[in-house]
């Protein structure tokens, strides 16, 4: 049934319709809605509950989370440094030689070495290298002196730096073990596959093996050990010694001696160090200055 709507024709009709149950109900509920919201804040509570329910699925954005991420990144960075340092310390503690020590510390990393460990590492060095790094007398003075507080070892691109520090972190003495030294410690002395005459530095002082050793045995007994500091290098070599050369200049109190070995028709030269003053005395005998 279609009901025709028409505007009230009379004022009474207007009043009647205005205050109808429907209108009064609508006004009442609207007022109730507004009043209850102002009184009980149920809209805010409803929304708050809804948002709390969806909280775990929402992104961690905003300044507070950003701060958290910065903190996390900082912790990771610092832990990385500490972890690397701990690893380096562990490797260094286990190191038996400077080669192992060097492989445990990357450039820029550093660790503190115990005095006893340094002594042990120093003792593991071939005498020719250890004496060149630091004389035993100086080392004894430093290690047993009252100034030394700790030994600081730092990896470097060109090898290892070892600092002997006092209690104020002042460097009392510094050692640099170059990459070449480390290679030499690791591989030992590599023979040079040449005739000794082809090595220019020996050119003015080459002697036959017989002549050389005859002169050696003319030296006082106590000098001979200083003449050939690493006899094992020569004892390990196969073949016969044909010639011996003396290097034409001294380095840090040592002079190189070149021993030419011949085996299976091939010649090679083993270079070892001798103390300068012992070699000098030998030279006098070789040149016939003293007899």
């Amino acid at each position: 049934m279609i009901q025709q709507w028409h505007e009230p024709a009379t004022f009474q009709e207007w009043l009647k319709r205005t205050f109808s149950f429907l209108n009064i109900g609508l006004v009442f509920f609207a007022a109730l809605f507004i009043f209850s919201e102002f009184r009980f804040n149920w809209c805010e509570k409803l929304l708050g509950r809804y948002l709390a329910a969806t909280n775990p699925h929402r992104p961690e954005t905003g300044s507070i989370w950003k701060t958290g991420r910065h903190t996390l990144a900082a912790n990771r960075f610092l832990n990385d440094i500490i972890q690397k340092k701990q690893e380096a310390t562990q490797k260094v503690e286990q190191a038996q030689t400077f080669v192992e020590l060097s492989s445990g510390i990357l450039p820029g990393e550093w660790v503190t070495l115990q005095k006893e460990q340094f002594k042990s590492l120093y003792r593991s060095l071939p005498q020719s290298i250890s004496s060149r790094l630091i004389s035993p007398a100086r080392l004894i003075w430093i290690l047993s002196g009252k100034d030394l507080n700790r030994i600081f070892c730092e990896g470097a691109v060109q090898g290892l730096n070892i600092y002997f520090l006092d209690s104020q972190n002042r460097v009392i003495h510094q050692l640099t073990i170059s990459s070449e030294d480390i290679v030499q410690i690791e591989t030992g002395v590599q023979p040079i596959s040449k005739n000794i005459e082809e090595i220019e530095e020996f050119s003015n002082s080459i002697f036959s093996a017989r002549h050389f050793f005859e002169a050696v045995f003319m030296l006082p007994e106590d000098i001979i050990p200083d003449l050939i500091l690493n006899p094992e290098l020569l004892l390990d070599e196969k073949g016969q010694i044909q010639k011996v050369g003396i290097w034409n200049e001294a380095q840090s109190g040592f002079i190189n001696l070149g021993f030419e070995f011949e085996a299976n028709g091939r010649k090679r030269v083993v270079v070892v160090k001798g103390r300068e003053w012992a070699v000098w005395q030998l030279g006098l005998i070789l040149r016939g200055d003293t007899r």
Partner: peptide
Amino acid sequence: VFFMSNDLPKLPQPLSRIIETP
């Protein structure tokens, strides 16, 4: 609300976590 709530930041729980930066 439905549209924006997905982009709203997550609230740390408990709220005191906000003051934990060393």
